[in-house]
């Protein structure tokens, strides 16, 4: 039975509140950093940094608050599938918009 393993590994791993506190501080720190970075003059890097920090924060939430770090492979795969389809939608639509600007050919 293939799922036997999945089931066992998914049995609850209780994350200690200490980790939650650390993550909380990291997130608050990230928020401060992203606000601070937005006031710097970084040219094209401004949105990149804003998104990178946001992604970092989201990762912390997903991995620790949402327990994905301690979850089964299936859950990880699910998260990955979501991100992948999301990027497909954005990426392929934007590809059309950007290449429109390249002119006729």
């Amino acid at each position: 039975m293939t799922d036997q393993k999945e089931m066992e590994s998914a049995s609850h791993h209780v994350v200690s509140p200490k980790i939650y506190v650390i993550i909380l501080f990291a997130l608050i720190l990230g928020t401060a950093a992203t606000v601070w970075a937005s006031f710097l003059e970084l040219g094209p890097w401004n949105p990149v940094i804003a998104l990178a920090i946001a992604t970092g924060k989201a990762m912390l939430v997903v991995l620790y608050f949402m327990h994905v770090k301690y979850s089964s492979k299936l859950t990880k795969l699910t998260v990955f599938a979501g991100i992948f389809t999301f990027l497909t939608l954005i990426g392929m639509t934007l590809a059309d918009y950007f290449s429109r600007a390249w002119g006729q050919w």
């Binding site: 497909t88 392929m92 590809a95 290449s99």
Partner: peptide, 18 residues
């Protein structure tokens, strides 16, 4: 199936590369 949707839009003025 997720990667082919714009074939409904070939004559609608999407980019030729697309």
């Amino acid at each position: 199936g997720f990667f082919v949707w714009a074939h409904h839009m070939f004559i609608m003025g999407i980019s030729n590369y697309a």
